[in-house]
Amino acid sequence: MPNDDLMPIGVFARRSGLTSSALRFYADSGLLPPAEVAPVSGYRFYGPDQVDRAVLLRRLREIAMPLAGVAAVLDAGADTAARLVDEHVARIADDAAAARRTAAVIKSALGDVPGLLIAVLKGPVLADAVEQVLTATAQEAGPPVLAGLRVEVDHEAITLTATDRYRLSTRTLVPAEPPGRTWAGTIDGAELRSAVAGIRRGPLVRVEAAPHGIRLRVAGREDHHCRSLPGEFPDHRLLLASLGEATTRVTVAKDALLRALEEHPGERVGLHVTGRAVHVLDATGPGDAAAAVPADGERPAGSLPAVATGRPLRIWFELTTLYPAVSTAIGADVMLDLRGHDEPVTVRSADRGDLTTLVMPVSAAHPA
């Protein structure tokens, strides 16, 4: 008879998240043999110390790792196991990318539907624009269009836009050849990112509307097909049109501001804009020393020379929201248009306006 610590297969199945049939399979394959088998009935019993191994086995199978790979991970040390998992995930990603490329070829061949030329752009310019604007896409669960890039073509320019509802980034490009038609669609951001390396090396990229997406064509290189996403893209034009006039405008050196943000110790960062400086503030807890504190609960983390017009203003951001907006700005100086402590802030290059990012502030450094 089994001892009192052992669990019958049904109990162990519930503890591990594996079905009884899966446990029998893994026992027969040698990956997870039971601790004891009743000699007469053949009932299988498992020990508490086997739960962690069973859970790890289940999770490895959930990422489609083959049995040989699972066995290697289960019997390896932590460092080796982590490396084996990384290698497996990389292979899956490569296989998925290859499958997407093959699927694009298959779809293009179905009916032999030719692409409709919508724009011709310089490869490096398009690649940079895609990377800059896609910093505003959502990485969490949400509507698919929030992980995509909105592409809008008119007779003069092509505009790229992305938003996660907390940021909005848009850039307007002048094509190498005037577009001959208008077109609009929301394109999968992950597939565009994977295409960037290829289009960056192309002097010119033909952007063609294809069934279910767009095709990026560079002479002498493999085409990239990026699929369109379902759903309605947020009305970013209405948002931009509804913005009030800036009440404070400040221009500051981009590298200096980025360095101050990189050295900032907290998750939230404050900017106190005065006529000749931007003070980067750090929220502090109650009871901290009040020396050199410009206002209750704030300590100056850095003071940057700046040129500002309008009234002084103090405003707070999540660091993960503000930093990407500043880092992707074009040029040596960045301009911030502020409309109040609770209104969207426009971040753009001081000398070029074709890349614009809206950043939502947070209401306060600490909840009331």
Rank of each mutant, 00 (worst) to 15 (best):
D351I: 05
D282N: 04
R53F: 06
A308I: 08
I187H: 00
H155K: 01
L149Y: 01
A195M: 07
R268F: 03
G77H: 02
A71M: 07
V120Y: 04
P234W: 15
Y323E: 15
L229Y: 05
C226M: 10
G180S: 11
R15M: 13
T309H: 07
P367E: 01
L313W: 08
E298G: 00
A103G: 15
L261D: 01
G17D: 05
V145G: 04
R59L: 12
L229S: 05
G285V: 08
V218W: 10
L229H: 05
D342M: 10
A127D: 06
E191D: 03
F25M: 11
D223A: 15
L57E: 07
G275S: 03
G123V: 04
D235H: 13
E343M: 10
L216S: 14
L67A: 01
P203I: 06
G185K: 00
F12A: 00
A68S: 07
I214D: 11
P144S: 02
P143Y: 07
I199W: 07
V205E: 09
A78Y: 00
D164I: 07
H88L: 07
S41C: 08
T328L: 03
P294S: 00
L57F: 06
T163I: 02
H155D: 01
L6K: 03
P39Q: 10
P361I: 11
I9A: 01
E177T: 09
T309V: 13
A325C: 15
A38N: 10
R150P: 03
L322D: 14
A246F: 12
R58P: 15
D75G: 10
T248P: 11
R314M: 08
L126I: 02
D296A: 06
G47E: 00
G42W: 15
L338W: 13
L258A: 00
L18Y: 07
T170D: 00
G17P: 09
S169L: 02
Y43K: 11
A308T: 07
D154Y: 00
E152S: 01
L134E: 02
V218H: 11
G297L: 06
V89I: 15
A13F: 05
P203E: 14
V359C: 12
I92K: 09
I315F: 14
V252Y: 04
T321W: 13
G231T: 09
A256N: 05
A176S: 09
L258Y: 02
L304C: 06
V345D: 14
V250Y: 04
V207H: 09
W183Q: 01
D128C: 02
G17F: 11
V196P: 14
Q132I: 04
A71G: 12
L319P: 02
R167H: 01
F317D: 07
V70T: 07
A176Y: 00
D296H: 03
A241L: 14
A260P: 14
T251H: 00
V73Y: 11
L168A: 00
I106T: 14
V40F: 14
F45S: 08
R59G: 12
R221N: 02
R165K: 08
T321M: 13
P234T: 10
A289E: 08
